[in-house]
Design a binder for these strands. Structure first.
Lengths: 353, 353
DNA sequence: GTGAAAGCGCTAACAC
DNA sequence: GTGTTAGCGCTTTCAC
């Protein structure tokens, strides 16, 4: 590896001058600059960021810990995070926690050992104290993403999950549905899911309708069919519309319904949550609450970088969601759009709230 | 930040002893070890990886550059890469090139500046010399992932794209289709797509059938409808089956077909490439050539880490693909599985080749 | 078994 | 405008 020392030697200057040239601090005489430039080119020199980091106590790297990359929601968030970091000349270290609390702590500690200048994290539950202590004790700014803001927590970028779930409920009720139900991932493992449940149940109560049944399924459940059969088993209490705590679940539910001989939305309406891209292309296209995942990642990186620059005090950032109306919901007793479907792009259905 | 120095002071030992304790090199007397352990706990000390890296010339970090995280294929590869790295105590730095050659080079240079101990990259085209030079000039091992092996390139983890595309062609022909076509992303921007085209066209030629039409679409094409209309416009030459160079495209194509009033597979069969998870849940579920994306990422990290350990010389790693038969393909003139669909899990249709 | 000291590659005072 | 030098946090000889 070529070092700054060799460059200095080749260019017949001191290493300080090379450093000044590289960082554009203090004036380097044009002629000297040229010699340094030639030396760098000749030796194919790239400054060692490790040496630089040790001295400056800044790695110009940001860390991000998410539950999983297999969920497009988080992949998109990382995408936005990377874009925002890159824009300001930062790099990103990333790892996944696999929805495991131990792994989550371990991941945070690892990234902190690498001296990242900021750290974004989707905690299993934002009220779990362990991780937050680790984070708070550290010099680096951190931001919780997707997590529910807690009263004492000011560093968080998310959407209002309760309000968003309420909108899903209202949409279904407007379509005439009265018996609703929710299928959700494990509530204990996700404060987001809990809040969505609360918002959904609360909205239905406010509308004076009977409380919805809520069914938890394992997050990785490949087969939601048993849950669905149980839910739809009793004709008297059979729901006519389902709210799913995320899009993957909603898609799995529609698939299972199909295999059970049910048609969506004719026999049952389904609403998802997340707004993943592919859900648009589904048949039927999914009605879903869209959260701006790319923006969440982007805002998290931006917030931490701004904070470093000492701009303003930390505040929770609550990003807007929207309801994207697709073909998986229809008025009670109707079969939704007929085939062939409308030609208009589904985007135009998007309603900003 | 607490340093090793403070720990040493607190424990009344030298920093060398603390270092020995941390790295478990040389024997530290149990009693001394206890004091150090207490000091570490009391001060909440975490070793600074930057200092460590500078001294040892190893960051214990791996880098990965992929075109985009929005494509589940690459997200899964990163997931596997992260898992393999983590297993051996390595961390990962990640960034995306957004299918841009300049950005690709920049990304590689950035990660190299961070002194990553290995670098995985999906190059736009593996035969583009620029990046490979950069990589070859460096001390760190690298691996191309997804890219087509070139004669002189030994560090690559991928599948046999040509053979895989041929299997797609054979599947369609077996079903009785004779007029085939392919819709692909920009060939100039992806050596994978080029190879798949070659494999598809070649297989059809070998089978003695008329050459398929091949249409390129922009990678980000939200609307493939015009292409589809053009392709299906002439009844005499109208293909009865389509091969798409990736699953997202295939899904978009099925969506567009639906909106045009066509039914898949009744009116036209569609085969994808990639094997993304959600494609299973689609209605109709997608017939697709599955590449083991997680394994590709995993193998890439593992290969570089093994190589560091000086095990064996670099060899191209060609991972097996498989054809997953879904509901989007059917015998010519038939409407595929009837509704309701079979109850058996789609996994059981998977044929290992 | 433990300590003293050199030095990894770089930046930033401080001299001149 | 440029050189000299100290030192960031750590590991690793080399002594003892």
């Amino acid at each position: 590896m070529t070092t700054i020392h060799e460059v200095a030697q080749y260019a017949q200057v001191s290493i300080a001058t090379v450093s000044r040239y590289l960082n554009d601090t203090a004036g380097v005489r044009p002629e000297t600059g040229r010699r340094v430039r030639e030396a760098i080119a000749a030796l194919d020199f790239q400054p060692n960021q490790i040496g630089r980091s040790l001295k400056t106590a800044s790695t110009r790297a940001l860390g991000i810990v998410i539950p999983s990359l297999e969920n497009p929601v988080f992949a998109q968030a990382v995408s936005g995070f990377d874009a925002a970091a890159r824009r300001r000349g930062y790099s990103v270290m990333m790892t996944t926690s696999e929805y495991d609390q131990h792994r989550e702590i371990e991941a945070v500690e690892t990234l902190l050992r690498y001296q990242v200048d900021g750290l974004a994290l989707t905690a299993t539950r934002s009220d779990a104290p362990v991780v937050r202590e680790r984070l708070a004790a550290n010099r680096a700014p951190y931001t919780l993403i997707y997590n529910e803001p807690t009263p004492d927590e000011r560093a968080v970028v998310t959407v209002d999950n309760a309000a968003a779930a309420a909108v899903a409920a209202e949409h279904l009720v407007e379509l005439g549905h009265r018996r609703l139900a929710m299928i959700t991932g494990r509530l204990a493992e996700s404060d987001r899911a809990s809040r969505r449940r609360d918002g959904f149940v609360g909205a239905i109560a406010r509308l004076g309708l009977p409380a919805p049944q809520v069914r938890e399924v394992d997050f990785s459940a490949r087969d939601v069919r048993p849950v669905l059969e149980q839910l739809l088993g009793t004709p008297a209490t059979r729901p006519t519309a389902l709210f799913c705590s995320n899009d993957r679940l909603a898609i799995a539910v529609i698939g299972a319904a199909n295999r059970m001989g049910l048609r969506v939305p004719r026999d049952i309406s389904v609403v998802g949550f997340d707004g993943i891209d592919l859900a648009r292309e589904f048949v039927p296209s999914l009605t879903t609450v869209v959260q701006p995942s790319y923006d969440i990642g982007y805002a998290a990186a931006k917030a931490m970088l701004d904070r470093r620059a000492g701009q303003d005090p930390t505040m929770p950032v609550i990003l807007p969601f929207s309801l994207r109306i697709g073909e998986s919901t229809a008025p009670l007793g109707q079969d939704g759009p007929t085939t062939p479907r409308p030609v208009c792009p589904p985007q135009s259905n998007e309603a900003m709230l």
